[in-house]
């Protein structure tokens, strides 16, 4: 996975970066963060890559059965910086998931570390697997 990028004033990405800083911010435009979703017996673990999003600019919302992850990139940049090349052209992340009925949205726990959000959504008590004892009379 080798690649090279020349740091040049007129890099191909410069146009996009310049256009983005000039254009009025569009509220709808956001990058879709990549996620891993793993389910085990007691719940679902969701990990999302949100590089550059500090804790105070991350919004997690559960509304009925919809989970919304929203984050704004907040990187401190030196004054007078001029973008020359950009692969992350939109400083915003957003992704929406629909939760299923057996998940308990009231018990969601979240952790943000090094730009990775880890969400744990436990299954509701009644949906947890149970071993049923067979009684022999």
């Amino acid at each position: 996975m080798n690649d090279s990028t020349a740091v040049a004033r007129n890099a191909p990405g410069a146009r996009a970066a310049a256009a983005q800083s000039e254009a009025a911010p569009r509220a709808e435009t956001a990058l879709i963060p990549p996620v891993d979703v793993i389910e085990d017996a007691t719940g679902i673990t969701l990990r999302a890559d949100l590089p550059g999003v500090p804790k105070d600019k991350l919004t997690l919302q559960v509304e009925s059965d919809t989970l919304t992850i929203e984050g704004e990139v907040g990187i401190p940049t030196p004054e007078g910086i001029e973008p020359t090349y950009a692969e992350v052209s939109v400083p915003r992340f957003r992704r929406v998931f629909t939760l299923s009925k057996e998940l308990d949205p009231g018990k969601v726990s979240a952790e943000l570390k090094h730009g990775v959000l880890t969400l744990r959504i436990p299954k509701a008590e009644h949906a947890q697997p149970r071993r049923i004892d067979v009684r022999v009379d």
Binding site: T5, I75, E79, I81, P83, T84, A86, V116
Partner: peptide, 18 residues
Amino acid sequence: LNIGGTPQSVEIFAFAPG
């Protein structure tokens, strides 16, 4: 990668979470 520059420096931002 995002790259920018000021008259004094070259600034490179690598989005490498986790």
